[in-house]
Each structure stands twice: as structure tokens, then as C-alpha cells.
Design a protein around this nucleic acid. Structure first.
Lengths: 192, 192
DNA sequence: TTTTTTGTACTGACCAGTCAGTTCAAAAAT
DNA sequence: ATTTTTGAACTGACTGGTCAGTACAAAAAA
């Protein structure tokens, strides 16, 4: 079976929302990109809002899964896992540019929507913070660092590095980029 | 003389744009916030676009000035200046929350506008990259790091840390926050 | 006098959401 | 076997509201 219409819609909506932002994306445009009639959009989602949240929710879930899969790798030492999670962020963001854009600009201004997206994203932050806190308890992360700040920094540095690359139309991440981010992160790890 | 009408407009526009985003901000709303008649808006700025770009441009200039003022302090050693620039970012972002929000979500989707904002922001990036490159040449920053990546990371970590704080309705930056960011940054500095 | 500001009223483009109607495959009736 | 019915999936023209930008006359400032 080919993609279902619903999948087509979600994919098209992701492209459109990422490119134009929530308000500048019209339902007609989504219908065009998804190659579906406008009515079909409203058959599957009752409002633009609902479609938007569905797209974000799915994306955040993917990001969380991707983090989980690294943190549960028994073949890596604890401190290797931190660096590997950073790499995974870079990989994820570069493979899902549209989603990356959406997540980085999650403050859309709308009170209610921000609330929702905040809740969804906080699923991600909670996951990350739990992992980092555990690492800190086990002595792999310096005891005097603020977990929350470390996590939002990691998210911000990975995200913005990708964003800037995308803006400069550079493709892919070089070894020097990775090294730079690893070194930044190593500042908060306890020394070997 | 009190604030000129034009200043009132720019300030009101900053508030409105930061809160609602470009598209969801109406000119009527800006006029309301700025306590100015709609006609006055169009007397000073011929389009919404023009007003928006003026606001961003002014903001980026402020950020660049703020970075310059730190990097030119002769009383600080070179490596002190790097950390001080980071602190300055935090201060600037926390004192100009609205602007911080706007700059972080500068990708609005509109091709032309992104181009413009990109150009304006790249003034900031160029400045920062020049400083960091100089520090690297003088041996205060590890030779194997990628300057551009370091700068976008710094911007991203400071910005997102503030954004997250704002979202969690936490006020101000604690010493632990600063320490965390300093430690991150110290990873790319040559050791004393 | 000239420039700036105000406020109201208006226009036209644009867009979220609606709805009457189509398609079609599978189930039920004949 | 053939016809009829059902209902879920889908379509796209249409509607009602919103908002950038205009027009302009009168008032206030400079």
C-alpha cells in the first residue's frame, strides 16, 4: 500500500509549516503540497490547529525515541553516551530539517498554542533532564552544573548550529563541527 | 521632550511582534499598544514589512554594540572577555526578552524577509566570528575548533537558556546557570 | 504656514472552515 | 448472480470574517 492520504497530509503539512510558519501556511497550500483536496484535510483534522499539533507531537515523539535509543545502548560507556546523544541531535536535526525549524521557533505567540507545544516539548526536556541528572548522580557530569541549563544549552547549540548551516546553505556536518560541540560539552563532564 | 511618536511606535511594534509573531500582529494592534493613531504608523513607515525590519535592525545593532563594548574592555584579559561576552548575551537577552524572542525565531518562512533578517543577523555573526577568530589566532581558543560553530552554539545556548527560563516563568539567571554556561564554554578555551 | 497627528470610514485580497455532492468497494437484499 | 444499499473517504466551489493599506478632513504642534 502507498502512503495513506492522512500520512500525505501530515508530511505536506510539516513541509509547509516549517517553510512558512503557522500563520503564513494556508490550508489550501497544505492541500496542494499533499496533493489532496482541501476537504480531505478537514475530513481527517477538524481544524488547522489540530493538524499543526499532530505534526509537532509526532515530531517530538521521534526526537525522544531517538534520544532514548542512544541512552539505552549498553555497549557504550556513560560518558560516551552523552557525546553520542549530542551527535544524535545533530543527525536528527539534519535529517529532519523541517522539524528542526519548527521546534526551534516553537514560540508562535499564541498563548494557547505555545502552552500546548510547550507541554509537548517538555516531554523531551523531561526525558533529557532525567538522563543528565542520572549521569550527574553517577559522577559523569560535574556536580556543580545546573541540569536544566545544560539541557537547554545542548538543544540550543545543536539546533542553532544546524539552523545556521541551513541558512548558509552549507550541507552536512563536518568533523570539525562535531569536535567543536564535543569540546563544548566536555567542559561540563568530569575529567577522565 | 518625551519619546517621539516614532520611538513609541517602534517600541510598541517590538512588544507586539515578539508576542504574536509577524503575521499575527495587526497594524491596528500596534497602533493600540503604541497609543498612536493608525495613520501615524503609515506616516512614519510605509508598510508593515518596513516597520518590522526597522525594529529588527535596531535590535541587532544594540546586540552588536553590547558585544563590542565588552570585547574592547582593556581592563580584562582576553580569555576573561570571552566569558564576559557570554554573560553579556545573557544580560542582554534577559533585559530585552521581546527582542530575544524575535531574534530566536527569525525564520519566519517568508523568503524575502528571511533574506533581510539573515543579512541583519549576519552582521552580528560576522562581528562575533571576527572576535573569536582573533582570540584563536592569539592562542586563547583551541586551534582545532570551528569558529562559526562555536559562535552559533554560543548564541543558541544563551538564547535557548533564556527562552526556556521565560517559558518556565523563572526569573533571572542564577550563579549556577552562569557557572554551567562558563564551563561549557571553557571546553573550547586553551587551559591556563 | 508647514508638518505631524488623529480618527473614522472604506476597499479588496485573502483564507479558515463549510457543505452539497461524488466515488467506490463491500455488505445486504433480491 | 444481480441489484440495491450503505458509509467512509474524498472533492472543490463557496461564504463570512479579517486585515493591510487608503482616503481625507479636521485638529494640534512646530
Amino acid at each position: 500500500m502507498a502512503r495513506s492520504k492522512k500520512d500525505q497530509i501530515v508530511e505536506g503539512a510539516l513541509m509547509a509549516f516549517a517553510q512558512y510558519g503557522y500563520s503564513d501556511t494556508t490550508m489550501d497550500a497544505i492541500a496542494d503540497v499533499a496533493e489532496v483536496a482541501k476537504g480531505t484535510l478537514y475530513y481527517h483534522f477538524s481544524t488547522k490547529e489540530e493538524l499543526f499539533l499532530y505534526v509537532i507531537e509526532k515530531g517530538v515523539k521521534m526526537l525522544i525515541d531517538s534520544v532514548d535509543s542512544v541512552m539505552q545502548r549498553e555497549d557504550l560507556s556513560m560518558d560516551q553516551r552523552v557525546l553520542c546523544v549530542l551527535d544524535e541531535h545533530l543527525r536528527f536535526f539534519s535529517e529532519n530539517r523541517e522539524l528542526c525549524l519548527l521546534l526551534l521557533s516553537f514560540f508562535t505567540g499564541d498563548q494557547q498554542r505555545d502552552e500546548m507545544i510547550g507541554k509537548l516539548l517538555s516531554g523531551y526536556f523531561t526525558t533529557m533532564e532525567a538522563y543528565v541528572a542520572e549521569l550527574q548522580r553517577e559522577g559523569f557530569v560535574r556536580p556543580d552544573i545546573e541540569v536544566r541549563t545544560m539541557v537547554s544549552s545542548l538543544f540550543g547549540m545543536a539546533g542553532f548550529t544546524m539552523l545556521r548551516k541551513q541558512f548558509r546553505k552549507e550541507t552536512g556536518i563536518t568533523d570539525a563541527d562535531k569536535r567543536t560541540l564535543h569540546l563544548l560539552l566536555s567542559g561540563v563532564l568530569t575529567k577522565g
